[in-house]
Design a protein around this nucleic acid. Sequence first.
DNA 1: AGCAATTAGATTGTATACAATTTAATATAA
DNA 2: TTATATTAAATTGTATACAATCTAATTGCT
Lengths: 150, 150
Amino acid sequence: MSDKYDSLKLENQLCFPLYSASREITRTYQPFLEKIHLTYTQYITMMVLWEHESMNVKSLGKYLLLDSGTLTPLLKKLEEKDLIVRKRNKEDERNLIIELTDKGRELKEEALSVPQSIIAKLNLSQEEAIFLYKILYKIIQQLQECSNKN
Amino acid sequence: MSDKYDSLKLENQLCFPLYSASREITRTYQPFLEKIHLTYTQYITMMVLWEHESMNVKSLGKYLLLDSGTLTPLLKKLEEKDLIVRKRNKEDERNLIIELTDKGRELKEEALSVPQSIIAKLNLSQEEAIFLYKILYKIIQQLQECSNKN
DNA sequence: AGCAATTAGATTGTATACAATTTAATATAA
DNA sequence: TTATATTAAATTGTATACAATCTAATTGCT
């Protein structure tokens, strides 16, 4: 019952459920993030800033694996919401420093309930969660090594 | 060394590596798909059609977990490339039937080498791949049940 | 039959992603 | 030191995603 086209069936792909699960999760976040007026990408950006307070766009991109084409407009929106300020580094004007505002810092409190809400919905065992976590980072690392070679 | 904000650290998220891994994989596909002039989303759409030959937009969306807002412009592009034809169902004019063209069918041969190229780059063991596959579908199913409740 | 509800796609508007290019600032090398 | 290379962001253009709304076709109900 197998033919040479089996590898081209959607159900035999590993990448497709990865892509779909990622989007489903983002969709799951949405009602929770709506309450604090953030999109998913804005939320993970704020996460990095909540932990590090201040950072240039380049470093932010390294944490988030996003480039300036994505981050520049996103950061401008966060600035419009008064959650961050954007200012050039005096030492090196090429660098744009992103800093939390008081309002941005305060949002951290409101965000505290979000992770638990999502974890509850995922309904994974501890072992499953840990395994998934490890394997995903393994994939990310593996693919980044690949692309750096070229 | 733990504080109440630990749950808001990027490194403690499960969703972030899922989101990043998904994008990394899509990026990994790109050079291979470029050769057959498809984007990743166009590729998985073609996969469904290679297996089923003919299908309306609604069904396609069920397989791909995508809605008409995404599919309509995508399908128009596939039609421009002469890979598919779009025509209304005579029985029920609300349905738009998507069918492969000869050129679309032929593309299947050229796509045959793609899955192996990607699997090779992922560098996962059989067990890891199977576990990952299962858990991702579990997540997708779980989250879809959640959203259907509301 | 006639009209309200439902259904399938299309459209609109917003927000990513990201390759490729551009711009401005800084570092480096002849 | 001055032309060249490199670097960091911004910009441009294309392609998704997706909520919300709209439109046309069909179904169901009375």
